[in-house]
């Protein structure tokens, strides 16, 4: 299966900004358990083992 990715609007950051990420390529992702923004659900990243994950860390501002 191959999908076109030409429309991806990647928010590329500077190398310095990448250096300010706690995520290290080749290392385990941090194990985090947090509520969602509705306050009704909790998600543990460890529960997603076995699946690929695309994680967006952002703010609405």
């Amino acid at each position: 299966m191959k999908h076109t990715l030409a429309l991806f609007a990647l928010a590329l950051l500077s190398p310095a900004a990448v250096g300010q990420s706690p995520y290290r390529v080749g290392a385990p992702a941090p194990e985090l358990r947090l509520p969602d923004i509705t306050g009704e659900h909790t998600l543990d990243l460890a529960d997603l083992l076995g699946r690929k994950v695309v994680l967006f860390e952002f703010a609405s501002w």
Partner: peptide, 26 residues
Amino acid sequence: LTESKVVPLHVLIDEHGIVRGVNPTA
């Protein structure tokens, strides 16, 4: 708690929980 210092960040995590990319190209 993630201790990120900037946003946005786009992180690719494989099925074994290993980070495979941060702010990747298309």
